[in-house]
């Protein structure tokens, strides 16, 4: 099976999205730097976005197939915008934390533990 001579379908996009998603999850789980965790979140959101785009695409689906249509792209747009908002707030929180605790290690953020 030669990938070069075969038309790309939704599944191919889903595979890429899955890899990005899993990388993001592993990144969130293993990184101790708060900003590293934030990068993992970005990867997860992008993996999900890729799936939305693939489901809504008229390029990847056969003509006449039921797709998400424009909804996929619109949801992806909202995800991008919300990710920007989330990054801004998370960054402000991280900087605040860094100023108060002089560290960005999330393992040390246990002051609220009972």
């Amino acid at each position: 099976m030669n990938l070069l001579t075969q038309p790309v379908g939704v599944s191919h996009y889903l595979v890429v999205g899955a890899v990005l998603f899993v990388c993001g999850v592993v990144c969130m789980a293993t990184k101790r730097n708060a900003l590293g965790v934030l990068m993992g979140i970005e990867l997860v959101l992008n993996g999900a976005n890729l799936n939305f785009i693939a489901f809504g695409s008229h390029v990847l689906n056969r003509a006449g197939a039921r797709t998400l249509g424009l909804d996929g792209q619109l949801i992806a747009l909202f995800v991008i915008v919300l990710a920007a908002a989330e990054a801004a707030i998370a960054l402000a929180i991280t900087l605040n934390y860094y100023n108060n605790q002089a560290t960005v290690d999330v393992d040390h953020a246990d002051e609220l533990r009972g």
Binding site: Q6, P7, V8, G9, V10, S11, H12, L14, V15, A18, V19, F21, V22, C23, V25, V26, A29, V59, L60, N61, R62, A63, A65
Partner: peptide
């Protein structure tokens, strides 16, 4: 955890016949 999640997702991605090939 990541490996098992990836296995599940890949399984799902290739389980619908209409998706495996583009137009």
């Amino acid at each position: 955890v990541g490996g098992s999640l990836l296995a599940v997702l890949l399984q799902v991605a290739w389980s619908v016949d209409a998706w495996t090939q583009g137009p």
